[in-house]
Structure formats: C-alpha cells, structure tokens
Design a binder for these strands. Structure first.
Lengths: 250, 250
DNA sequence: GAACGGCATTCGACATTGTCGAACGCTGGG
DNA sequence: CCCAGCGTTCGACAATGTCGAATGCCGTTC
C-alpha cells in the first residue's frame, strides 16, 4: 500500500499471528505463514524484542508476545471513551439484571470486549476484557453488524446448532435487530447461555459500541425461548444512557 | 542500532509516547519530541492507524492508542507464565492476609503489574493490571531491584516524605532486602498505605517477578511501624510456592 | 557414532523503500 | 482579515530493509 511503512505492517502482522495462535511460534513458521524470507522475519523479531513487544523463549528459541504490550493495552483502556462513559452504567445494569455485563466494539471483524462486569454472585468467572468474539453469533456482535455498512463476515462458524450461519438468515435477523433496536443470542454462541444487547451511539448518532447482558438461558428467557421484556428494557435504557453521555442526541 | 529495523523502533517510540502522556498527542508534538520530520511521523502514524494500533480523533486531528493493542495486551496476559502460575496462590494469599495482592515484573525501568487480586472486602478498588509503578518506592519494586544486576533507576521521585531517594539509602535498603528475603514500603509510595513483597524465582533460581500485599499501614504494621511478622511469613510462603511451580529449586 | 534436515542467525550486495524538504490547504486565534 | 501552525501530499534520493547464501547448532534417524 503506498504511503504506509511496509515493515511496520509486517511487524503488526507478526504480532497478530502471535496473539491468535498457540502463543509461541518459531521464526520459520512465521516466515512461511507471511511468505517472507527468514532473515527478514529475524530482523523484525529482533527489533520487536528490543522494544519489549516480543520475547524469545531461551530453551526452544520460539517467540511470544512481550510485556510492553500489556501496558499499551491497558493504557488504551484508560483513554477509551466508550468504556469510560459505560462504566457508570454497567455496574447498576449488572445489579438490576443480576447478570454479567459486557461492552464491545468492532475490531478485526470481531467484537472486542472493552468492559466487563461480573454477574453479581460468587460463581467462578473469568474477565473477558480484551477478548475477541464472533460478530454473527453474539448479541453484541449482531448489534454491531446491524448498524455498520460493511458486508457480513465471510467466516460464520457454527458455535452451536442454533448459530445463524446462512447469509439470508443472518441478513433477516439484522433487519429485525434494526427494527427492534436490540439483539439477542439464544444459545447461538454458548450452549445453555443467552444474551441481550443494545446499541451505544456516539456523537452524530453513529453506533460506536454495544452493551449487553448474558447468563443462563432459563434466566434470560421465558419458557418459549423469548427474552424477558423487563431485561430487554433495562439493557436498552442503560445503552441509551451511555449514548447520551457520549453526546448522541437520537 | 545495526541489525534492527529503525522504522519499527520509531513506531514503538510513538506508541510509548501515546501511552505515557495525556492520551492524545498531535502529530507535531510527536515529531518535535522524537526529533523527526513531520512527513516521517505522518507515514508511521498512518501505518499504525491502518493496523489498529493508533486512532485519530476526527475533530482535533490528534492521535491516540488504538483498540488492537488491547487484544495484544490481554493475549500477552494469557500466555504469561509468571501470571498463570501465580493465580492459584494469589487468591488464597488475599484471603489469608485480608489484603490486596499484586504480582509484578520489570518493564522499562518500572514495575509492570501482571496480576492483581482485590482486597476481599467491598471497598471501591481499581484493577492495576497493566499499570507501571516505580521500582524505588514500592515493595514489589524494591524486591525486583534487589535481585537484578542493573544500576539503580536514575529518576527517584519522592512520592511521599518517606520515599527513599538517596543512592546510599536505597542501596543500603536493597542490601537489607537481599539479606531478609523480602521488602516493605511503609508509606513510601502512598500516604497511609504499606506493602510487603517477596521474590518469585524461575527455573535456575533467577528472580523473574515479585509477589506482594498492600493495605492500610495500621493493618500491615504494628504500632512501631514494623510489618507484622505473620504477614511477612505468609507472603514469603506464597512467593516460594509460585517459585516452585515455575521450576525454581532454591 | 555418523549423517542429515531444519532451525536461528549472520553477512553483505543491492534494490526498494522510508525519509524529509518544500509546498499546500485548512483552521483557529488575534 | 491576516497569520501561524497544523496535518497532509509530492517527489527526489539516500539510507535502509530485504533476502540469497552461508554458517553453526541441535534433535532425530539409522
């Protein structure tokens, strides 16, 4: 691409590979995957190692992500306005709904979770901040898909037997999401779990994120697999409040 | 530096600047600080923007860290062995001590927090994972300083009136830390708070991190400002357990 | 124990790219 | 209205990044 720095793009591609796979990769694997000469990859990795973005395992010689990225990642969280505006509404939403709350935005064709409030109980939970989730199989993702102009994601893995993978099914679903103003995923991403999400708009009305709750399907839905209207209402109210904080007027 | 890719080093310097300052910087400020021509910085920023590491504010034209870094940062956490081995011991340590627990390692001349367990009560707390703390003014930092071969940090800000800033005072303190096998900071970083930390060793006995507790000084120390021996003991025990998990034999 | 294949790393030639001076248009402040 | 400083574009050219060839190491196989 003209006007950009090719070696920085290559370095970013290497970091994404390291983030997406088993954690550690050999120089040769990286070179093969990116179709680059080994000395080229070696120079890039040595530079990334020097700036702390990559570490090399002393025993195997393999490479992995480095500590400096953690600081950059959390610094990003500190300045992320979607997150800072959402925080005030996320705890009350978790309290009122009794479910886990997540806020997400689009990154690399998936949902990036930028804030996560645990379900207010003492079950074991893991923090999802920073994780990527599919757009087509989650409530957050369907909201983000519904309001963006890009095409449907080409890869639509069936996470459960209820995941919508067909283009027509998904398009119809997104039309419905736009009409209703919220989305649900009912055992489409995780068997036994359901979620409800609503759009967060920024200045000018553009959808900049989504806010949602998730929990066991029998808590989120009634006996006919329909999300409880009360829960839909409080999710939408909370998302609207965040939108107002962000300067949306619609 | 020969053998490394200069433009990647420059890109990393830009990202560190964005992480370290007020969050948003103008292209001109970055160019001045790094003594680079504006078109040079522009090309690097455009590339970083293309890969999601940087975003540009539509209104002011200023640049800030991008969402892709969050995913890289949390991916680093997922594979960080110091953290994965510490997790099992951190919760019990918080429970037994009744205090907040942090695990840290050295990054860019400071302490990088890689794990944090909240004090087990319902006071308001913020998650410190990814934050950087001073080496000279924290218990975690003093442990890390005591067992590394590098020189003392040149910048030794006085966070409180009790912070050790003199080279002789700090050197003497680090000798004491090595002798005792643990460190404390007693209102040296935060007025009203104290902390205790012990080294975590990796394979071969090298110190790869530190584990510590922190809380109100009147809970951590007795009336003569001495850390409670019971707390010192359980911190050291927990750190030794993590060390064993990491393959240290000492 | 020897041979082999594939690894990470180094070296140096050279072609490509990244750098940067000059210029431009825009915007906010005086 | 004017001006200073901004972000951005363009194109020349020097510096750098790329990569083929080679090397040494290590684990595996015979």
């Amino acid at each position: 691409m003209p006007g950009t720095v090719q070696s920085i793009e290559r370095a970013a591609a290497i970091l994404r590979m390291l983030a997406g796979g088993p954690g550690k990769l050999s120089l040769a694997e990286i070179a093969r995957s990116l179709d680059l000469a080994k000395p080229t990859v070696h120079g890039i990795l040595r530079t990334l190692q020097g700036v702390g973005f990559v570490e090399q395992d002393r025993v195997s010689g393999h490479y992995q992500l480095g500590a400096a990225l953690l600081h950059l990642g959390t610094s990003y969280l500190d300045i992320n306005e979607l997150r800072s505006r959402s925080i005030n509404w996320a705890d009350p939403l978790a309290a009122r709904s009794g479910e886990a709350v997540r806020i997400g935005t689009v990154l690399e064709g998936r949902v990036l979770v930028v804030h996560h409030v645990f379900r207010p109980d003492d079950t074991f939970q893991t923090l999802d901040i920073g994780t990527l989730m599919p757009l087509h199989a989650t409530a957050l993702g369907k909201v983000l898909l519904a309001y963006r102009s890009a095409a449907l994601p080409p890869a639509r893995d069936p996470f459960t037997h209820r995941t919508l993978t067909g283009e027509r099914d998904l398009s119809a679903e997104l039309t419905h999401v736009r009409d209703a103003g919220w989305a649900a995923d009912i055992e489409e991403f995780t068997v036994g779990e359901a979620a409800i999400a609503a759009p967060i708009r920024g200045y000018g009305g553009l959808v900049v994120g989504a806010m949602g709750i998730s929990g066991l399907v029998e808590r989120i839905c009634d006996s006919r697999y329909r999300p409880h209207a009360r829960l839909v209402g409080i999710v939408r109210d909370a998302a609207r409040a965040v939108s107002r904080d962000l300067g949306a007027t619609r």
